[in-house]
Simulated assay, not measured.
Amino acid sequence: MAYKHLVRRALFSLGGGDPEIAHERTMAALSRLGQVRPAVRGLRALFGAKVDTTVFGVRFPGLVGLAAGMDKDGRALRAWPAMGFGHVEVGTVTRHAQPGNPRPRLFRLRESEAIINRMGFNNAGADALAARLAALGPVGVPLGISIGKSKVTPVEEAVEDYRHSLRALYPHGDYFAVNVSSPNTPGLRGLQDRAALDALVGELRREADRLAGGERVKPLLVKIAPDLTDHAIGEVLQVCADHRVAGVIATNTTLGRDGLTPAEAPTGAEAGGLSGRPLAERSRQVVALVARETGGALPIIGVGGVFDTDAATRMLDAGASLVQLYTGFVFEGPSLVRRINRAVESR
């Protein structure tokens, strides 16, 4: 409650209420915090998870992870595990550094407990992230890296764009998420079409095999949109099976606007992907569909609308092996991570 009444109120007022300024300042503060070892140790004691699980060959010291988009360039990687996260997914990162879409591009919907973003993969580029991770060393929890297409790269050249990022970052990640489902890069979602996805994932799988050099191949996952039809999801799953994809992340943000309060309809009309509580049921449905279609054989990371322990357990019961937070963490703070961890421990 202290987070909502004190910390969140202060954060939401930063920069005159501009969500992106609040995000930037929060990331800077967490980056500094991660360099203070006594503070990190204290937070670990308070928030640390106690449930170990192995998913797609990777050992996770907790079922709750940080979703991609929060720490695109890996600036606060020491802080996240201290707040109880059992894995951290950085990115989405692209081959070429890019500023993203023009501001304003991030919109907070308080009553609906949702966020609309059209950030457009703003990041410093795959090579810059690789250099930062090399200097940082081990994070302490599994590190996922989400890779996407640069805006300047034509869709027909997307494969090489993704392949460059995979090559640059392969030594540093524990798994790699192939993001073909963000609504904020022109043409990107077309890569979920069966033929395009087959070509992309096939080449990335071959590149991962080569980079492994005879050792265990690091897992490749595909992140899918909640707006796909069941038939389209089935085609994505067939591509995953054909190329031995290690898992699926369900789901990305949605272009739908169901679940918003009438008062926030004007903000809801902003272009971009919606995340948060209104997405919870659809994300859970997609998780359940993937689990059913694959007979539970394909690991799933469930993300979308996880705001409380009930939403997290429903996601796990639907078939997810792990869950991730983004908007729920913004609105509920680090105590949400602890509450979910404790609920999972008692199952």
Score class of each variant (00 low, 15 high):
His231Glu: 12
Arg108Gln: 03
Gly140Leu: 03
Arg25Ala: 00
Arg216Phe: 09
Gly144Trp: 11
Leu279His: 05
Ala168Asn: 01
Gly304Trp: 12
Pro219Cys: 10
Leu6Cys: 07
Phe47Thr: 03
Ala22Lys: 00
Gly137Met: 09
Thr94Glu: 06
Gly125Asn: 12
Ile21Asn: 11
Asp242Cys: 04
Thr153Ile: 03
Gly69Ala: 02
Leu279Asp: 05
Ser346Asp: 15
Thr229Met: 02
Thr327Cys: 13
Thr309Ala: 03
Leu220Met: 00
Ile300His: 14
Arg103Ala: 13
Leu325Gly: 13
Leu66Ala: 04
Pro138Glu: 15
Arg118Thr: 02
Phe176Cys: 03
Ser146Trp: 01
Ala97Gln: 15
Val286Lys: 01
Leu289Met: 13
Phe176Gly: 06
Ser335Thr: 02
Ser150Pro: 10
Asp52Gln: 04
Tyr162Arg: 01
Asp161Asn: 14
Asp308Phe: 10
Thr92Tyr: 10
Leu220Asp: 13
Val290His: 12
Leu274Val: 07
Ala280Gly: 03
Ala130Cys: 03
Met315Arg: 08
Thr251Ala: 10
Thr327Tyr: 13
Ala29Thr: 06
Thr261Val: 14
Gln192Asn: 06
Arg118Ile: 01
Val287Tyr: 07
Leu30Arg: 06
Arg41Thr: 09
Leu143Glu: 13
Pro142Arg: 02
Val58Trp: 04
Gly214Trp: 14
Arg132Gln: 14
Asp52Cys: 01
Val139Asn: 14
Val90Ile: 05
Arg342Trp: 13
Gly34Phe: 05
Gly187Asn: 14
Pro226Arg: 15
Ala225Val: 10
Thr261Phe: 11
Gly328Gln: 08
Pro262Ile: 00
Thr261Asp: 11
Ile300Met: 11
Glu24Ala: 08
His5Phe: 14
Phe176Met: 03
Val90Ser: 10
Met315Gln: 07
Arg292Cys: 05
Leu255Ile: 12
Ala232Ser: 08
Ile300Arg: 00
Gly305His: 14
Val51Met: 04
Arg32Ser: 14
Ala158Val: 03
Val245Ala: 02
Glu207Gln: 12
Gly247Thr: 00
Val236Thr: 06
Arg282Cys: 00
Thr185Met: 07
Thr54Asn: 15
Leu316His: 07
Phe307Lys: 05
Gly213Ser: 03
Gly62Asp: 11
Arg277Phe: 07
Val236Ala: 14
Met119Phe: 11
Gly190Asn: 11
Leu63Cys: 07
Ser283Phe: 05
Gly276Tyr: 01
Glu235Asp: 04
Gly100Leu: 12
Ala199Met: 13
Ser13Phe: 01
Pro102Leu: 03
Ala241Gly: 13
Asp71Leu: 02
